[in-house]
Write a protein that binds this DNA or RNA. Sequence first.
DNA 1: CCAAAAGTGTTGGGCCTACACCCATGT
DNA 2: ACATGGGTGTAGGCCCAACACTTTTGG
Lengths: 239, 239
Amino acid sequence: MHGYDKHAYEPFAVTVDLAVLTLRAGALHVLLVERGQEPYAGRWALPGGFLLPEESAETAARRELAEETGLADVTGLHLEQLRTYSEPGRDPRMRVVSVAFAALLPHPPEPRGGGDASQARWVPYDAAADLAFDHDRILADARDRVGAKLEYTCLATAFCPPEFTLGELQQVYETVWGTALDRPNFRRKVLATPGFVEAVPGAARLTGGRGKPAALYRAGPATTLHPPLLRTPREGRPA
Amino acid sequence: MHGYDKHAYEPFAVTVDLAVLTLRAGALHVLLVERGQEPYAGRWALPGGFLLPEESAETAARRELAEETGLADVTGLHLEQLRTYSEPGRDPRMRVVSVAFAALLPHPPEPRGGGDASQARWVPYDAAADLAFDHDRILADARDRVGAKLEYTCLATAFCPPEFTLGELQQVYETVWGTALDRPNFRRKVLATPGFVEAVPGAARLTGGRGKPAALYRAGPATTLHPPLLRTPREGRPA
DNA sequence: CCAAAAGTGTTGGGCCTACACCCATGT
DNA sequence: ACATGGGTGTAGGCCCAACACTTTTGG
């Protein structure tokens, strides 16, 4: 960052890659695109693409998501920088430095292919393997990070629609962590954390078609959880 | 990441910036260099520099640290990627994307200037302001991240020499957090966390010149703390 | 009436804060 | 002897996991 001799540095291509996660039918899903060009043509990959000259990585991430998947202006999209992958050789034909993002969204619209992607699709997390480039690793890092941040931040609400029930919020934890939680205790912990959720007065909704209608909540102003909601699993694994 | 049309992307300069933190005389210090060239000539900045063609960001970070400060092959250097700063305009004369790292080290050797830096120096964290570029922000982000990771990882040992006393480990927490901790309880928490520290049999060392010699410990194999060591401050603020 | 889902109550145990106290060393 | 820092013990309280129980809906 100090010498500006034009020969002192080499230009790199800079890209963004997105691990877009959501919950569908009680299972964690990731948004994948099928590559239309070499290298890795026909293989599945994380959506992403090159930075434009006047874009930050965050801006490029939102643009690429819209272009390649049709998910434009998604309400409630949570974007978070994961880390940057810069190993030489991670792209077989040129030097590419990639800024990876994890993105969470609540209600998943059906994506469509576009841009360089021949098609885009929601894939169950466990079925997403053998991705192009080092995307297997990026995806695994994203899941680890999201799982860890559920413990000590309010991130879980990013998986939920604007108004949600505590049962839905609990399902986020159970699905991402792969553990069952005690409902009464979960409710008390959440409600005891100031600013985590806010009650929507008078509102209620039926969830499973049966049972008592659940009260609705909105995400509160807090961003961190004190104390954290620790991953103390029971044995079972629900849907 | 999908089209390889040579006109579809713009090359960027890619750099690394390092927030190197250590403890000196019970206070958090950061390693700064004085810039020898425009822009920001004469201003203090975080050490850093351009990636070479065959380097990962991690490799470049270690190389730049050695070149600009003389800190080569520092034993126990902990390097951790912070995030990437890519806003257009963060460098006044060209488009630069910078991968920032936080680095922690135990015993701070006296650095020397070198490379593009006219001098390098340890500066108390609170005195490090008005840095070049967006380095104020990077430094603040580094401190936040380190403080948070002390809670739920074994990171604190990265501030300590290979063999350390529990009192020294506690000082790490107290200095970074700016809070006083209860010594008996701190000791029990640390020893109760499997894999956090390992006793060095029979070894002991005097710390303050006076008092009972303290038993020595090594960093253990664990990387995360279960349960976490939460920041529950008492009122005081010690040295 | 039954099943299913939301929500409340309660209890016993464990952890942890706060503090008192003992140990070893230098001056 | 005393100051200084390391290390142990312990009591009270808070937190919380576990589970029983009530409430409200659809079939």
